[in-house]
Design a protein around this nucleic acid. Structure first.
Lengths: 217, 217, 217, 217
DNA sequence: TATGAATGAGACTTCATTCAT
DNA sequence: GATGAATGAAGTCTCATTCAT
């Protein structure tokens, strides 16, 4: 019944390729439906139907509904850590704004919006994955803040742990607004973000490039 | 048959009291179990069992599981708007820190911690309730920011909408950390919060009371 | 993959056939159990068990218990209007008796006996279906009576509406006796039925074929 | 609290009287609600509420819901046997019509309409009560028909058993139409009823009083 | 591999009946 | 006696997952 590719137009392995297409279709359908109706209210059957495969096929690609969700999250987790906080010389506000804008533009193109992290947090196993990622991110941020602090670039009277989760909260909010399709003024956001980190005079120096003591982390 | 309240300030109406006790017990059990296992994974039967009443009794007090959750949320919503941003003269960081500490102390005493707003957001009806409250809060905050801006107390180069949701994000994070029992340094938090709002010189003046042009909103 | 029907008049589509078998099994089980224990006292689970399928399977074929009943009724409704009242020349009593006997013989072969219309009448939706059918039948009967009356074949002093529902009542009783497995003397029944319709002399003339003015409706 | 009747206006026993009132109220409420929504869909609580007593009080007067229904039926059963078939001399059609009219007038005054016998028939215990009554009635009717037959008053070529249940069916239909509030032309009905029993010449003689051989049963 | 019908545990909810007050 | 809150068995229905084709 299926004689396609007898000669060789498809040098890659058709089966694996089709497999991957189905897997991707299921992932996409999962993302869409979880986003629309929530994890618990989306059935495996619906995901399969939306992906135009049979119910049983779902279980060839994912051991169960949760595994699909986990895959989705794993993809998403990287998006939760959108920026490294390496400050090359130049206007930090503009640098940050540019990086953020590019990041979310990419995200939106990948159509990864609208997976609601909010639904995931109570499921022990899921929470683990997400929480772990958040913790990693927080650690990384905090570590970086310590560096900045040591270099004297940051407000000196700040409590670094608290600043860490405050910044994290802003990043999460940013992502959430983006997921929800709410407007974001990246320029304004960056200004606020930087103001939490750097005293005005440091920003000025960074802008001017007159920050002698500064070297990348 | 009815000699209650011959003495004393708190008349006890046995039936109503017992009723209310049951209702409260159910609410408490709901809060605990939703917190432990998530809304979707908690059954009405379990809540009833945890509250040591029969399954059917659950339905005397709540039309269904969601109604209990709604009640829980309604209680919680007020806690989401913990502070008014009225800045009486004096050290704003200390004022804020004090207010926050008191607020969360009260919350924790009421044992309202650990209701995870995160689980609720996909349910249309629930989301409405929560979202509405958040929006109200954001409006209130933004309005206040406009006032501060007009009075020249705020950073003048700030985009107020963005600052609004940034502050909101911090408040939510604060609440969430509190709910999760994570440590919070209110003093440090307030410093960051105020730094987002006020330029250093304004803070200085508020501290000194030398802020002529300032009058309460 | 599809070699079915290479030979033979009754192509077998295995899946559809099995499906239909299950559906039929459920209908049959429903009929039996409703008959034995009544509609309200029969549970979907029991019907499924009796049909040797899982509870969930019941809901693949019927949206709920009522829908199964409705199907049962729809089948049954046609059986409620067993006879047309067209009187070809010849002994009317014998004609009627013959027709009735054949009708109920067929019914009994289809094993449609024992669905108790009596249980259904309080359910608004069901009542509608049944009542509608009854009304249709009554209208048809009454219309026919008017025709007979105009032709002068009927008792001339009769009130036709009343005669209509009286005849209907007899037909329903006939069906009910049949459903309950009670004995019916179709010959005797027909004699009574005809006597309600026709004066003796008309019957005599029909028997003799000397009824000049008569032509089929 | 209740000092009524200290002197003696109420010679009967007040408690028992009030009891009876409650019992009657419950019966009436049961009749109404069963009629409106069916036996199975009416709850004891609703009946109690409708009768303005507490749920528990229901169980002081009736051991359970069925017992109330049984009482209702017992009352109703007598109404199912509305006529004795004693034919005093005189126009039988008019006699019958008169008796029927009076009977149903009384029924309707007692507000006994609208208890649907139809709902009851599948419940083993209830069916027994009703079926027994029907059988009794049928026996009585049949016995009477035998008498009439022996006296030569009836159609001689009739099968008496069949005539018995045919007449019963008419009576039931009459009752059902009355219960449903449908119009009934008692005069016309009686004409049909009598025509099934008596040949025209017998009716004529009864009318004239020239029926020598006739004496009441 | 793909299919989708089938399974059955378990969630939700109702209500007849009991019982403490 | 009267009350109505409480009980918990039982019914309805859903859906994650399996399995024969």
């Amino acid at each position: 019944m299926a004689h396609e590719n007898l000669i060789g137009d498809f040098p890659t392995f058709p089966k694996q390729q089709r497999s991957m297409q189905k897997r991707q279709a299921l992932l996409k359908s999962g993302r869409i439906l979880f986003g629309e109706k929530g994890y618990e209210h989306t059935t495996a059957k619906e995901i399969a139907a939306h992906a135009k495969v049979a119910t049983g096929t779902f279980y060839r690609y994912f051991s169960d509904k949760r595994q699909l969700l986990m895959s989705l999250i794993e993809d998403h987790i990287d998006d939760m850590m959108p920026i490294d906080l390496e400050w090359k010389s130049g206007d930090p506000e503009k640098l940050l704004a540019g990086r953020l804008e590019m990041h979310y533009h990419k995200i939106n193109e990948k159509n990864l919006r609208r997976l609601m992290p909010e639904i995931l947090f109570r499921d022990a196993e899921l929470a683990e994955v997400v929480q772990e990622a958040k913790t990693r991110m927080l650690e990384k941020v905090t570590e970086h803040l310590h560096l900045l602090h040591r270099k004297g670039l940051m407000w000196q009277d700040i409590e670094i742990e608290t600043l860490g989760w405050s910044l994290q909260s802003l990043m999460e909010k940013l992502q959430s607004r983006n997921d929800q399709g709410l407007p974001v003024d990246y320029q304004a956001f960056s200004k606020i973000f930087c103001r939490m980190l750097f005293p005005p005079e440091v920003i000025q120096k960074m802008r001017n490039g007159t920050l002698n003591e500064w070297k990348g982390p």
